[in-house]
Design a binder for these strands. Structure first.
Lengths: 209, 209
DNA sequence: CCGCATCCTCATGGATACTG
DNA sequence: CAGTATCCATGAGGATGCGG
């Protein structure tokens, strides 16, 4: 909205930059990877095209992101600056805070699997105890991801080449329950949190090691 | 604004609750201590009375804060719920992220010393190295505070009774520089970041131990 | 197609005045 | 003191257009 609080205060000035509607959701999308205008429209259901354009312009002048030409000569691409990427911490904090708002399920709200890419590690970091060698693969349609336990927490990235040892299917809601809880992954499986039935938005969770 | 993103996503649902204008600033004020309506008006320069009333109502129904009668039988008081108080982490993350926005000074923006009560510990936690026994007292007019180094970080609260050993004065801008930098407190003093001259908004920083 | 810009309507924010 | 009521400016969101 470009409307400043005009306060000499860290929180107020942070909100002057990222407090406007959609801004943190745009940044979260770009924290996954640089994206095109069209990908942002698709990943932010409900945003108007003029709003996205204005927000991208504003965040660019504020120094949060950069607009640049994509490699293949076609179209523009938006990337976070180093300072913009540091919004990962506030965003993950908000995701952890929001778990009570997620346990009641989707209730007709839109869902995109990419949103789990930050959420699951953010939640697991704080709560789930897993054996250090555990690896979880997640497959949403054509999106194939691998969740690895590291010493400092969890890391979610593209699935590397090696084969996985077991496969189960679950719904997004159950993945979020799993992430928000304090169960180990094998406990969650034993308790039936991970199901085998199909769903419009099916996740295949693959456990190995 | 009561306008929901309608997304099944932790970040979006967090912003449905605290993403509206003024909401996080209200919560930050209540993180310091429970407050009356009038105190909130004074601590949030620029907020309209109808907006504050509406936000308090909304945050109450959302479960972030509670409205209750003050002890002395007179007036109402607003307090954070335990869940609302957990917003301290996201708020401190945003404060840390905002340091590049603070280094250029006030530039005519409003300033209230209470805002430092969360900011200074949030910044010092991450960056300043101080001897474990260090204590800093801050005095803004009638507001007297003491900053103590603990094992887990820093804690800012009311000044306890014991006498303090040294006194210097500084401007809020310099306090913020100090907090955002990587200098020790004694280094900052030696380098002249802490001044003795007067100012409309003078801080007296008192070092001991 | 992509990457926006313009136009339009209506909900929301903000300032001021007023009230129990 | 603790808010309501009112009015007006502005931002949000949908539809559409348009050059590359």
């Amino acid at each position: 909205m470009n409307r400043s609080y005009d306060l000499y205060d860290g929180l107020a000035r942070a909100l002057d930059v990222v407090g406007d509607r959609w801004n943190l959701l745009i940044v979260r999308h770009l924290l996954i990877c640089p994206a095109r205008y069209r990908e942002l429209i698709d990943g932010l259901p409900g945003i108007a095209t003029n709003l996205l354009a204005e927000r991208l312009r504003y965040l660019q002048t504020a120094g949060v992101l950069e607009r640049r030409l994509a490699g293949a000569g076609n179209g523009v691409e938006y990337t976070l600056t180093p300072w913009g990427a540091e919004l990962r911490q506030p965003i993950e904090s908000l995701i952890r805070w929001s778990t009570p708002l997620m346990i009641n399920g989707a209730n007709g709200d839109s869902f995109r699997p990419e949103w789990l890419i930050l959420s699951i590690p953010a939640l697991l970091d704080a709560r789930v105890k897993v054996r250090p060698s555990a690896t979880v693969g997640l497959e949403f349609g054509d999106l194939l991801l691998q969740l690895r336990a590291t010493r400092s927490g969890f890391d979610l990235g593209p699935l590397d080449g090696r084969s996985l040892e077991a496969t189960v299917r679950t719904k997004p809601a159950h993945i979020l329950d799993l992430a928000a809880g304090t169960l180990t992954l094998s406990d969650a499986r034993a308790l039936g949190l991970i199901e085998l039935d199909g769903d419009e938005s099916v996740v295949r969770a693959v456990f190995s090691a």
